[in-house]
Simulated assay, not measured.
Amino acid sequence: MSTESVDGSDTRPTIEVTEDAAEQAHSLLEGEGLDDGIAGLRLFVQQGGCAGLSYGMRFDDEPEDDDTIYEHHGLRVFVDPASLKYIEGSVLDFESGLQAEGFHVENPNVVSECGCGESFRT
């Protein structure tokens, strides 16, 4: 699914992936024995958490027919149409620190988050 503007440039909502996040995801894909040329990371939004919505991630063998597919640093990211409206313009990053390590979504559409940062509201 892609929208073309009059001048031919791609105008679909973007999901960016940092190099650190792509490297970590590639490592995990490899550990799962998945072909990163076909398989990818599914990024989605689900109901839940104290703020109403939460992010979900999993590896899928291949995209669904109606997914938007992004590719950054060789990592394929699959986003379903319902989730895309909540996370368009987001950046997927990987953070490591003293208290936690993991993937983090920087979402410009968020108007509030819960205290733990696991759920959000748009």
Rank of each mutant, 00 (worst) to 15 (best):
V105M: 14
T18P: 01
E4N: 06
S9C: 07
T14L: 08
E4G: 04
G40K: 06
V105Y: 07
R58C: 13
F120C: 02
R42V: 05
H104V: 13
I38P: 06
H73A: 04
D35M: 05
C116N: 09
V79N: 10
E19Y: 01
D61L: 00
V17G: 01
G48I: 07
D93I: 11
E95T: 14
P13V: 02
G40C: 06
A21H: 03
F103P: 04
E101Y: 04
G8F: 06
T18N: 02
S112Y: 11
G52Y: 10
P63W: 09
S2H: 04
L28Q: 05
D67I: 09
S83A: 14
S96L: 12
G33M: 02
G89K: 04
Y55T: 08
G49T: 10
A39G: 00
L98P: 08
T18S: 10
H104T: 10
E113K: 06
L75W: 07
L75R: 08
E19H: 03
F103I: 07
D10S: 15
D61C: 01
G56M: 09
M1R: 06
H26M: 07
V91D: 03
L75M: 09
P13K: 02
R42K: 06
D93T: 15
R58L: 13
P81R: 04
S5N: 14
D20C: 07
V79A: 12
S27H: 14
E19S: 02
F78K: 10
S5I: 02
P13R: 03
P63L: 07
T122V: 12
F44A: 14
D7I: 14
E62R: 08
S9Y: 10
K85G: 10
S90L: 03
E32V: 01
D7G: 13
T14P: 03
I69M: 11
R12M: 05
V105D: 09
N107A: 02
Y86R: 05
S27T: 15
I15R: 02
G48V: 09
F44R: 12
G8Y: 09
S119G: 07
A22N: 01
G31A: 12
G37T: 15
S54E: 14
E19A: 05
L28E: 02
L43N: 10
V105P: 03
E64R: 14
R58S: 14
L43D: 12
E32T: 00
G56R: 11
G102R: 14
C116R: 03
E30D: 10
F44D: 12
L41P: 14
M1G: 11
D80C: 04
E64F: 11
G33K: 01
G56S: 12
E30K: 06
E32G: 00
E32N: 00
D7H: 11
M57F: 05
V111Q: 06
E88M: 05
D67T: 06
V91K: 08
E64N: 13
S27L: 15
G49L: 09
D61T: 01
T68F: 05
T122A: 10
V77Y: 04
C116L: 02
E101W: 08
G117W: 12
Y55S: 03
T18R: 00
D20M: 13
P13W: 07
A25M: 12
L43H: 11
G31S: 07
G115W: 11
L53A: 10
Q99M: 14
L34W: 04
S5A: 15
H73C: 03
E71V: 01
E32S: 05
G102Y: 12
T18C: 04
D10T: 05
F59S: 05
